[in-house]
Amino acid sequence: MDKNILGNRMITQIGLLVNDIDETSQAYADFFGVEKPLWFWTDTVDLAQTEYNGESSVARAKLAFFDMGSLQLELIEPDRHPSTWREHLDKHGEGPHHIAFVVDGMKEKVALMEKNGMPLVQKGEYNGGRYAYMDTFKQLKIMLELLENDK
């Protein structure tokens, strides 16, 4: 395996899959003594250009974020459409889904990871950037999300 594939060792985010984003975000807000964040839907496929397993996908999810200093906690409640979120939640239940890293050069990083046996599972756009979920379970025992923000 190539070394230092991402060029970054700082975990930016931990993503958790949940069945009820309102209930879980309230539990985290109470636990940490912070305000409950508002959740929002990911964009529709025409804006997000979502692809799952190489095909266009209408899958969406409710997201809520807790900023915890240098780390962000993301809660994800997927809709019923096929996605990495829905598949993982159905197979493994609620809990950790991914750890995320900010990268530069998304296409190059994805290609390098695929060359190293870590295939792209899902990708899409968001306001201000793009994401890619890479199947790193075999090597790293968790999914990695790559985040590239527009400059």
Rank of each mutant, 00 (worst) to 15 (best):
K3Y: 07
K3M: 03
I5S: 09
I5L: 15
L6E: 01
L6N: 04
G7R: 06
N8A: 04
R9T: 15
R9K: 12
M10R: 14
T12G: 08
T12H: 11
Q13F: 08
I14C: 09
G15D: 04
L16A: 04
L17M: 10
V18C: 13
V18E: 01
D20P: 01
D20K: 05
D20L: 02
D22T: 13
E23R: 15
E23S: 03
E23W: 03
T24Q: 07
Q26D: 09
Y28M: 13
F32E: 05
F32R: 09
G33R: 14
V34M: 13
E35L: 05
W39D: 12
W39G: 00
F40W: 05
F40T: 07
F40E: 04
W41K: 11
W41R: 10
T42D: 05
D43E: 15
T44V: 15
T44G: 06
V45G: 04
D46E: 12
D46S: 08
L47A: 13
L47F: 11
L47K: 15
A48M: 00
T50P: 05
E51S: 05
Y52K: 10
G54E: 05
G54Q: 04
E55Q: 10
S56M: 10
S56I: 02
V58P: 03
V58G: 01
A59Q: 10
A61V: 06
K62Q: 15
A64Q: 12
A64I: 13
A64K: 02
A64S: 12
A64F: 02
F66Q: 08
G69D: 08
G69V: 10
S70A: 11
Q72S: 08
E74Y: 08
I76N: 00
I76Q: 00
H81W: 01
H81A: 08
H81P: 00
P82W: 01
S83G: 00
T84W: 01
W85Y: 15
R86M: 12
R86Q: 13
H88F: 14
L89N: 06
K91W: 05
G93M: 09
G93F: 07
G93E: 06
E94S: 14
G95Q: 04
P96Y: 13
P96W: 01
P96S: 06
H97N: 05
I99F: 15
I99G: 03
A100D: 06
F101L: 06
V103I: 07
G105I: 06
K107Q: 13
K107H: 07
K107I: 02
K109D: 00
V110N: 01
M113T: 06
E114R: 06
E114H: 07
K115S: 14
G117F: 09
G117Q: 08
M118W: 05
P119M: 08
L120H: 11
V121S: 05
V121A: 10
K123G: 02
K123H: 02
G124C: 11
E125N: 06
E125H: 13
G128W: 12
R130K: 14
Y131D: 02
A132D: 01
Y133V: 04
T136P: 01
T136G: 07
F137M: 09
F137W: 11
Q139Y: 15
L140E: 04
L140P: 00
I142T: 09
L144S: 03
L144R: 03
L144K: 11
E145G: 10
L146F: 12
L147E: 14
L147F: 04
E148L: 11
E148V: 02
K151A: 12
